[in-house]
Amino acid sequence: MKTNSLSTKPHYAILDGLRGVAALMVVAFHLCEAHATSHQDQIINHGYLAVDFFFLLSGFVIGYAYDDRWGKMTIGNFFKRRLIRLQPMVVMGSIIGAVCYYFQSSGVFPIIGQTPVWQMLLIMVIGCTMLPIPPSMDIRGWAETYPLNGPAWSLFYEYVVNIFYALVARKLSKTVLSILVILSAGALIHLAVNQGDVIGGWSLNAEQMRIGFCRVMFPFFGGLLLFRIAKLRNIKNAFVWSSLLTIIVLAAPRIGTTENLWMNGLYDSLSIVLIFPLIIFLGASGEIQSAVGKKICKFLGDISYPIYITHYPLIYTYTAWVFDKKIPLKEAYPITILVFIAAVAIAYACLKWYDEPVRAWLNKRAKAPVKVKHESEVEAK
């Protein structure tokens, strides 16, 4: 944990690094997903669990950043801080999504060829506001709440639990919060074991919203409880061990077959309920000693949110190319690597040339005391 002279609190550099590791795994997962025929043969099979990992990280760091500030911070100021932190890149993700959508083929996306430009621009503007759209307004054919930038669905739930935290959860005792976390864990395990995984949450209908709330409630408030009760230790090489464990969990093959889905559901739920809190505990208990390690963690933390919220328009384009050309991964890998590198480059460019300057300007306007590039908050992407 690094002490930051520009902030009143130490900075969890390893947690930033872990967030970046998980974000890169998400990009690799989505690239490989374009070549999968089902959940069974998906490479980097459990990459979708990174979303739940992000939620847990977010709960831990939101508690760390804000639990002791409520005596001098209003709810309005809290919401203002969260909007400044999250919303600029939401807008950029929606704009990039619209640009990529305009040039995409309609083969794997059946509605694209039927969508007028004005309708696409309307969906882009709505996406910039984070207002969810119903399936009847879908312009891609995948029933996404944000059809120009699918992963934005998790930011919707991030906003929801942030609101609940500010209005209710920040006041809960450890006992009441523990009860909420236990009940949420039960709902998550029930969902995963019956469905076979926790995949879902990106559509605005009753079943998908049930999945979305199950996926956010335990991780976020479990992370908040972990922050409040954890007794951190001094763990050597914490970044190495926690990163390896994160990669192993996300890259593990599918467990079981279509005839025993409960096995994979049990893996998903136990990873979220037990292993992810352990990873965050390890990361929060360690400290980066080397200059190289500090630079790596800073870079990974810096690009984690930008890459999560901007990479998926590239995935749409890549998926359309794979679908139209019927190209297997063993032949597509040069382009696959190029897209991966492009996702990182675009994220870094957006961070330096857009996100940081915009947030600095907004913070100045809002007279927010915390410097943008040293903020130690972890979002769920």
Rank of each mutant, 00 (worst) to 15 (best):
A366F: 10
Q289C: 05
L351I: 06
V344W: 00
P334K: 04
A360H: 03
V292Y: 13
A349D: 06
D302L: 13
A366S: 15
W353L: 15
Q289M: 09
E379N: 13
Y312G: 00
V358L: 14
F323R: 00
D302F: 06
R359Q: 15
A360L: 05
G286M: 05
I335T: 05
E377R: 04
F340Q: 03
T310D: 08
L338K: 02
P328C: 00
Y305A: 07
Y316C: 12
E377P: 01
F299Q: 04
P313H: 11
A368N: 09
I303D: 14
I307W: 08
Y308G: 06
S285H: 14
E331L: 01
I309K: 01
E287Q: 10
G293V: 07
F340K: 04
G301P: 09
C350S: 11
I307Q: 02
A380D: 11
K325P: 00
C350A: 15
A380S: 13
L329E: 03
C350V: 08
K373L: 05
I335Q: 12
L338A: 14
D324F: 03
A368M: 14
K325Y: 01
K330H: 14
A342W: 02
R359C: 03
A360G: 07
S285N: 12
F340E: 03
E356P: 01
Y308F: 14
N363R: 15
A291H: 07
I337R: 07
L362Q: 06
V372T: 15
I346D: 00
K364T: 11
A345D: 07
A368I: 12
L338W: 07
S376E: 14
E331P: 00
T317W: 13
D355W: 00
W353K: 09
A345M: 14
R365K: 15
T319M: 12
C350G: 03
D355M: 07
C297T: 12
H311E: 05
V344H: 02
W353F: 15
A368H: 13
E356A: 11
L329M: 13
C350Y: 01
A349C: 06
Y312W: 14
F340R: 00
I335W: 12
F340G: 03
F340V: 02
K326L: 13
Y354L: 10
T310G: 03
Y318T: 06
K364Y: 05
V292P: 01
Y354S: 02
R359N: 10
K325N: 05
A332Y: 00
F340T: 01
V358Y: 13
A366E: 06
V372H: 04
F323E: 14
K330W: 10
K325L: 08
K367F: 08
I315H: 12
S304I: 08
P328T: 04
K330T: 14
Y305H: 04
I337P: 07
Y348Q: 04
R365V: 10
K325H: 12
F299N: 05
Y354Q: 03
A332H: 02
W353R: 09
P334S: 09
K373I: 08
V358C: 10
G301E: 09
F340P: 13
P328N: 05
